[in-house]
């Protein structure tokens, strides 16, 4: 057997294994979502409608008449030269997606932080100075997000927290869920209280916060002073997982990481906004990161 047919056979056999049953929840979710989703008109069908030359001529005449009527209605109503200029509404600007890597032009960029629901967008105004885009969730400072002097704003969601964020990989698999995961309730308060109650790190008492008009709770976390003994994906690269599992896997990668955590209720979806920094983070970078956080415009 040659190598090619060997790898063909291996791949076919390997791919045949694995889950083959759709989770029941998919049908319910899809049924709910299509109930809120209008079907598009088939423009292809409209374009393919047969059209006689007479019909085309009629449409062209109607278009000319329409333009003439609209044009006349927009003319200045008073005679004379130089009437008041008519304000022309500017077209709605399209907000560009946050680029990957260095953000070369200061401005407002759009993030879509969640896999599901994927509809939530968050617009953030990024300053000049070599900030780094990490779509779909994160904006890091000129020194990146790692210690000893990085800074970042990150958007995420989580349903669990790690009981031991340093030794998060209890089974050595590097996967979720893990034995130490703590399930938290669905509300903002549930998560805030769970974080505040975790003895693995120091935290402040949750207080009220509002970002982009959405209410929530804020607390500050002071994470471990020394990560050297923590689990990591690679040798000599320890990480510290505050949250557990999927879409919550944002971790600290540096000693003495400080997290300003805002947990928001965005029309029933819990959004976590983290501003992370280190003792060595330049004050200007920290201030700019706070500016990015304050600029967030969240659309459910």
């Amino acid at each position: 057997m040659n190598q090619r047919s060997d790898i063909d056979r291996l791949l076919t056999t390997w791919l045949d294994d694995g889950p083959t049953t759709m989770p029941d929840s998919v049908v319910d979710v899809v049924a709910d979502r299509i109930d809120r989703t209008r079907q598009r008109r088939s423009w292809r069908l409209l374009r393919r409608l047969p059209m006689s030359p007479l019909v085309k001529l009629g449409i062209a005449a109607a278009a000319v008449l329409f333009i003439a009527v609209v044009g006349y209605s927009l003319l200045p109503k008073q005679p004379g030269v130089g009437g008041q200029p008519t304000p022309v509404p500017s077209p709605t600007a399209t907000i560009p997606p946050l680029p990957e890597g260095t953000v070369t032009a200061a401005g407002t960029y759009r993030l879509t932080p969640f896999f599901s629901p994927a509809t939530m967008t968050v617009d953030a105004t990024v300053p000049e100075g070599g900030w780094l885009g990490g779509p779909p969730c994160c904006i890091a400072g000129p020194n990146d997000a790692n210690g000893p002097n990085g800074v970042a704003v990150a958007l995420l969601k989580a349903e669990t927290i790690n009981s031991d964020p340093c030794h998060w990989d209890k089974d050595g698999s590097g996967t979720a869920p893990q034995e130490g995961d703590i399930e938290v309730g669905p509300t903002v308060a549930d998560l805030a209280e769970a974080l505040a109650a975790n003895p693995a790190f120091a935290s402040t008492t949750p207080t009220d916060v509002a970002i982009s008009g959405f209410q929530g709770k804020r607390l500050d976390l002071q994470l471990a002073a020394d990560l050297s003994a923590c689990d990591g994906f690679e040798v000599d690269s320890p990480v510290y997982f505050v949250f557990g599992g999927r879409e919550g896997g944002f971790y600290a990668k540096g000693d003495n990481n400080r997290w300003q955590v805002s947990i928001l209720d965005v029309d029933g979806t819990r959004l976590i906004v983290v501003l992370l920094s280190y003792p060595g983070t330049p004050a200007a970078d920290l201030s700019a990161a706070q500016g990015i956080l304050d600029s967030l415009v969240i659309t459910p």
């Binding site: 294994d17 590097g174 979720a176 893990q178 999927r246 600290a252």
Partner: peptide, 25 residues
């Protein structure tokens, strides 16, 4: 693609699948 573009600090832990029978491989 979105997943790969995430920054170094955001790592989505892969979710364990139920173990598949190892009858062939």
């Amino acid at each position: 693609g979105r997943e790969r573009k995430r920054m170094s600090n955001l790592y989505v832990l892969p979710v364990d699948d139920p173990a598949a029978p190892d009858d062939l491989l």
